[in-house]
Design a protein around this nucleic acid. Structure first.
Length: 434
RNA sequence: CGGGGUGUAGCAUAGUGGUAGUGUACGCGCUUUGGGAGCGCGUGGUCCGAGUUCGAUUCUCGGCACCCCGACCA
């Protein structure tokens, strides 16, 4: 993408009312726009990050047999009344003004809706197991939205639901989801702890949370750094400085952000909605369910909380909105711009001169602005935070080269033009901290 | 939902009971071109409502918004 066509601009200073690191940097870089407290627009750059995260999630969910679909955000009251959740009032009642019954809520989770749908398609043990997921905007009537995109009233979530013949089968799948979740977070650059958390009235046992350590995190986790056993302080009997119950290692404490969670639901929803199957002997039994969530937008905020420096964001490779930032330094010599244009076409997946013919390539944000100075372009590149910066200037062109610098490094290297594509083939050139 | 803080231009800020100032961004011109470059000209603003007052952006009351702490968080 040419930066001259980008909808947004960077801000020199963060908005005064933001204190969370993710909110400041995402606003400065032009990734998000706050419409109201806890309600954000994802601007072109931010949306690309979201889509990168979604891509990772889809790959990992599909790998464990997940099938994607999309349910309505508008949830009829009839679904929620069957499990008494309507009165919890965590969603927003909407479309209620013309009808005192306020028949709809904005969905904050979809166990009820999907269970009702599933009862039409699941009737035999031969139909099980199944795993269905969606990536959707969710709504929570938060008393207090806070910390930028970490706790919003409207946010993006991936929710997966699984259906099984038995608890045994559910817990076997639970382990698969656990591994898939670790993969998702790792690919996003996050080191997560798998923490034991309290079960709610909707679960058959304790649940588990995926926690990424960060100062802004709302949760407190007690953990063993040796074997990585972890518990949420809400339910933990572990003590900081004490011994790990598993390996005798020392227990430490940290603030953490809950980026994912998994719940063994059991038969609560299937019983409420009559979701039954017949086993081999023809006996009817309620389907055993699990549900599993990842806060997509929260995940994006968490990455920023962990990967930044004083100049801006440092996006890990797989979630960066683009692979590289190509910059040309404006010059009297028009050959500099021409050479940069050519390099942009060469690197881009669809290069301008190759319309319709896909080829191998990298996604490049090309700072083609003629009226910006070098310093401004460098500052923008730091704020936006793409993993690699490629600079074409009068100076480098004289040597048929460009300067290539990684975002987390202080200095770049001069590389011959013909060697530039190779830089991208060598994946270590695009940093990832994990 | 309780407590605290803050509301002045797109953004960041100063100041005042009497014509609202600066930086940046934006527009125009010229000069620049490897870390938000320079000079000149220009556009653009007091959260909303009520009250006090000759006069309110400033004082009072009410509201709203945002941020922070707490409670809450299937």
């Amino acid at each position: 993408m040419r930066q001259s066509q980008l909808f947004t601009k960077t801000l020199k200073e963060a908005p005064a009312d933001e204190t969370a690191v993710n909110a400041k940097l995402l606003a400065r870089g032009g990734f998000v726009y706050k419409n109201s407290a806890g309600v954000y627009s994802y601007l072109p750059l931010g949306w690309r990050v979201i889509e990168k995260i979604n891509k990772i999630i889809r790959e990992e969910m599909n790998a464990i047999g997940g099938v994607e679909m999309l349910m309505p955000a508008l949830v009829d009251r009839k679904y929620l009344e069957q499990t008494d959740r309507f009165k919890l009032d965590v969603g927003f009642d909407v479309l209620g003004k013309k009808d005192k019954k306020a028949p709809y809520a904005l969905g904050w989770t979809h166990e009820e809706v999907l269970t009702a749908i599933a009862s039409k398609y699941i009737s035999s043990y031969k139909d099980l197991p199944k795993a269905i997921y969606q990536i959707q905007t969710k709504f929570r009537n938060e008393a207090r939205a806070k910390s930028g995109i970490l706790r919003g009233r409207e946010f993006l979530m991936k929710d997966l639901y699984s259906f099984h013949v038995s608890e045994e089968d559910l817990f076997a799948y639970y382990e698969k989801v656990k591994e898939a979740y670790f993969n998702v977070f790792k690919r996003c650059g996050l080191d997560t702890y798998y923490a034991l958390a309290s079960g709610g009235e909707f679960t058959i046992s304790n649940t588990h949370e995926f926690q990424a350590f960060a100062d802004v995190g709302e949760d407190t986790i007690l953990y063993c750094s040796q074997c990585r056993y972890a518990e949420n302080s809400e339910i933990s009997k572990l003590k900081e400085g004490g011994k790990c119950p598993n390996c005798e290692g020392n227990i430490s404490k940290s603030n953490a952000i809950e980026v994912g969670n998994i719940f063994p639901l059991g038969t609560k929803y299937s019983e409420a909605f009559g979701l039954e199957f017949q086993d081999e002997e023809g006996k009817k039994k309620p389907v055993v369910m699990g549900s599993y969530g990842i806060g997509v937008s929260r995940l994006m905020g968490t990455v920023v909380e962990i990967y930044h420096d004083k100049n801006g964001i440092l996006w890990p490779k797989e979630v960066a909105p683009f692979d590289a930032h190509l910059i040309y330094i404006p010059s009297r010599d028009s050959n500099v711009k021409k050479a940069a244009d050519k390099l942009y076409d060469l690197l881009s997946p669809y290069g301008g001169s190759l319309v319709g013919r896909q080829k191998e390539g990298v996604e490049v944000l090309y700072d083609d602005r003629a009226d910006s100075t070098a310093g401004e372009k460098f500052a923008d590149a730091d704020v936006i935070g793409l993993p690699m910066r490629v600079v074409m200037s009068e100076r480098t062109l004289e040597e048929d080269s460009v300067e290539v610098k990684e975002r987390d490094s202080d200095s770049g290297k001069i590389i011959k033009l013909e060697d530039v594509p190779k830089c991208f083939q060598n994946s270590s050139a695009i940093f990832q901290k994990t």
